[in-house]
Design a protein around this nucleic acid. Structure first.
Lengths: 173, 173
DNA sequence: CTGTATATTCTGTTTGTACTGAACGAAACG
DNA sequence: CGTTTCGTTCAGTACAAACAGAATATACAG
């Protein structure tokens, strides 16, 4: 992946842009896009050059991608540099990312909601209303978690099957 | 909603924190949390005081929440200020947010991917590999869109039913 | 029409994050 | 054992988003 073609550039730039919207930093997203498109693993230096960012930036970004488990270092014979490659299975990549965001964002929220419901003093003003609202919110997060648990084990093709079944159930009503 | 109770404070602060992680600004999220817990609509001033933020900040944040359709202004007899209230149906709220984020983030990405596949010149080096990767990614986004379309019309309880069916299908294999 | 209350827009400031370049450290090479 | 090559960490800088407060606009009351 020496010089980028127009299409590659477009994809990488767009991916970087999308990343920022999802709370993922632009460089991290761009590096991932680059590695995803690259048929072979790339050394840090080449990534830095290709994207015109500092090597230190590449270093920390790669670290983050590794933490997520969607990029890993591989070794090339006769080269002592680390080469980085992206996971290519798109479904698995998103599964990993979602799993971890769930852990960091959904789970703590469920926890807080439970805590709030425990702490809620029935004597204070409006406690009933507050409880009602918190319980509605908590119920939603429980359902989302359930949904996640159901989906996480499913192989790729399975999702579509279930979707079709869902469509049928919907029609009946 | 004059003074906040401990539980309310906890919820609002956490919600603000979560917001930032999802690319939603803290004040917007906090205001939403406040209105969600409030049994009655609140005027801008009271929101500003309760959360200790500038009224201008409240103004723009409310505007954003209104754009999403999860907060609206209501009028109170004998008071010419606008009072704001949050939608209380959690599922509907998230449906609205997701719908709009999909429009702004998923749809353009699908578009770009299609564009990239069209623009891809078979003659340039590695075109086959690039196409393979882009198609895998495009396929994923198509599936997500399909999933979204299937789900969007479903009433709340229906989701669980489908999940149960999914669980069964899974067991068979 | 004038004054007052409310809402919005604008401008400058603050704050937090991303990033660079340099310093440092560690591993391989000769 | 010194030198070179990589990789990481650190300190300062740059940038973008969020925010406060002032200025402006709008609507209502008397």
């Amino acid at each position: 992946m020496p010089e980028l073609t127009g299409v590659q550039k477009q994809y990488i730039l767009h991916w970087g842009e999308m990343g920022t919207r999802w709370g993922i930093n632009r460089t991290v997203a761009q590096i991932h896009a680059l590695l995803y498109l690259s048929p072979k693993a790339l050394p840090a230096e080449e990534i830095a050059e290709t994207l015109s960012v500092a090597r230190s930036n590449v270093s920390t970004s790669i670290r983050e991608l590794e933490t997520w488990g969607i990029v890993r270092a591989v070794h090339v014979l006769g080269d002592r540099r680390e080469h980085y490659e992206s996971m290519k299975d798109v479904w698995e990549m998103f599964r990993l990312v979602i799993e971890q965001r769930k852990r960091r964002e959904i789970d703590p929220t469920r926890e807080i909601l439970r805590q709030c419901l425990t702490d809620l003093d029935p004597k204070e003003v409006g406690a009933n209303y507050t409880r009602e609202r918190l319980e509605a919110m908590a119920g939603f997060f429980e359902a989302v978690t359930e949904l996640y648990d159901q989906m996480k084990g499913l192989p790729t093709g399975m999702v579509r099957k279930i979707l079709k079944m869902g469509a049928k159930v919907k029609k009946k009503h």
